[in-house]
Design a protein around this nucleic acid. Structure first.
Lengths: 334, 334
DNA sequence: ACCTGAAATGAAAACGGTTACATTTTAAAT
DNA sequence: ATTTAAAATGTAACCGTTTTCATTTCAGGT
């Protein structure tokens, strides 16, 4: 492969002139500029970006830790990240962590070994350990979607508590008072916030909270289906089910159908995320829309600002949500 | 940040010895090894991987061009790639191209500028142009899922023609003879192969092919829904619909439901891909299962072999498919 | 104790750019 | 024509590693 020296020789100038021609053309006379450009073509020069990155100390890579790319919501977030990163001249190193700390560590290490300039974490977990932290303290990271809100890192999240409250209020306004909830993993702050919002709405409406209307889940279709089967068999069945994400709701609806329960006549269903499928299931799912792509874009923008020293105190960005009422929720009967 | 020279000074040895201690410990006496290790700890040394990659000329990055990460099937493929790449010591630079040639070019250029060692393309399109190709000819690439089969690059694909034929035969065996097809984009070889398989089965069964049973689509839920609406209104309605992917089928089923058509009693539905949702829609979808994660793993393995010169002639790997019969297909009535 | 080959270590070049600094060329002002 | 500042270009150091080659140390055989 031709290098910058070959170009310099071919053009009869110094390597510095070649570099300047390519980086800051205005600092070079038009005459030599043409000579150099011609030489670049002649020898088929393509700059070794690895060398540039090494020399400049900036990799222009961003690591993204995503719990699972198979989750449709995350797929949208990633899509937004890609877009913003491309605009800002960064590339995304995507890590599908599957919640595995070892994988997280492996990729987090890329930041401390100069392979990436910063990291975006979509889970409420600090992937850096003592061995990675460098002299000057914190490593550049932005926490998005599901966040640890300790003020150390910039954060972009949703007011999950308010959103869950809004959805629960919607169900209450339809006359429901026995409202079940299929949760996410208990360890997730996101689950706790949504649970809190659910309780807020109950309390405000004077409905007492019942522990046994809570069902475990893990954001997958299968978990939703399992919980749905359980709920369908309950003697004192709830009249509405609020699921912590759409996959869970879709799984549960399928279980209800197989149990010959009609949604929403027998039981109302609500989800969270507004993934594309939710508008195309039967019945179309009432849910909370999150600006997923915008989450990704914001996280990247924030991280790049952080890298450029444009951020003093870790900002906290709260994204807006929207209650999308479709046909899976209806008046409570009986 | 401490560098290798700091370690050398702290340990009282040369930088060469430090490098050897870290790369090939057996080439260094146990005594100095300990000294060096202690010094590494003492100064908090973390090798600058950017420098290593630059020096070695190997980035250990692989670019993956995916038409859209929002497609659930591709998400699974990517997941498999991640896994294999991690095992082999490579990182994935993911590019969400959205079919945009400019984005493809941008990322493809990473290979010619030494930012990545090779590329995996999930679309039937050569992302390299004349400006990227280097002296020694072809750039390292593997083409997976939807492929251009010109023998230039290693390929990992499915026998889409055989799979489509198998599905069509299944429908025919249930007594269907008016079988519609909702296609993917016409430009896609994948679409052409599946169409050919569909025709193979018809021909074999002595059923004449009708051009007007073909409906356009683009692999999205919405396109499926649109086609479904059209089909529902047909005077001479087909009794079965074979969709080129599951999203399309799910979209179309929703349209049928809104038109009060029962699946499979009024109309049988078949998909392709076996995405997770397909088992949880109503009714569960008959489809063709593709080993998506295995696609990704194989593509990465093949690319790494190619990079290591372990491949002479571009291999062609054909992955197995499986017909998954669920409840969306039934006997033709009437 | 001495020689010899192997093992361990060190010195320095190399990878391919960027950039601070030095030098030359150019154009404008006298 | 001469001076002078600005513009253009060149020289060489530098980024942090790896690796070749030279040198030193070591252990084993006489």
């Amino acid at each position: 492969m031709a290098n910058i020296r070959d170009v310099a020789d071919s053009a009869g100038v110094s390597v510095a002139t070649v570099s300047r021609t390519l980086q800051q053309p205005e600092r070079v006379s038009p005459k030599t500029r043409n000579k150099v450009m011609a030489a670049v073509q002649a020898v088929g020069y393509k700059p070794n970006l690895m060398a540039v990155k090494f020399r400049s100390g900036k990799s222009h890579n961003l690591v993204v830790l995503v719990p699972t790319v198979a989750n449709v919501f995350f797929a949208r977030v990633i899509s937004g990240m890609q877009e913003a990163a491309a605009e800002l001249g960064y590339s995304i190193l995507l890590a599908n962590t599957l919640g595995n700390s070892e994988i997280e560590s492996h990729y987090a290490k890329m930041v401390s070994t100069s392979q990436a300039d910063g990291l975006i974490q979509l889970r409420a977990h600090n992937p850096f350990d003592a061995s990675m932290v460098n002299d000057n303290g914190l490593l550049p990271m932005v926490n998005a979607c599901e966040v640890i809100d300790d003020g150390q890192y910039p954060v972009v999240s949703l007011d999950n508590r308010a959103a869950a409250k809004a959805m629960t209020e919607h169900l209450i306004s339809l006359g429901h008072s026995r409202i079940a909830m299929i949760k996410g993993p208990n360890s997730s702050p996101l689950t706790q916030d949504r649970l809190a919002g659910y309780q807020d709405a109950l309390t405000q409406a004077g409905i007492s909270f019942e522990e046994n209307l809570l069902f475990p889940g893990d954001f997958t279709l299968q978990a939703g289906y399992n919980a749905g089967e359980t709920i369908a068999c309950l003697k004192d069945r709830p009249t509405a089910v609020f699921c912590e994400n759409d996959e869970t709701a879709i799984g549960a609806m399928q279980a209800f159908k197989q149990a010959n329960l009609h949604v929403p006549n027998d039981i109302s269903m609500a989800g969270f995320d507004d993934i594309a499928f939710s508008a195309f299931v039967d019945p179309p799912l009432t849910t909370i829309a999150q600006p997923a792509e915008e989450f990704g874009r914001t996280a990247v923008t924030l991280l790049v600002d952080l890298l450029n020293g444009k951020i003093r105190k870790a900002p906290k960005v709260i994204m807006p949500f929207e209650l999308i009422v479709r046909e899976s929720t209806g008046k409570a009967l009986g």
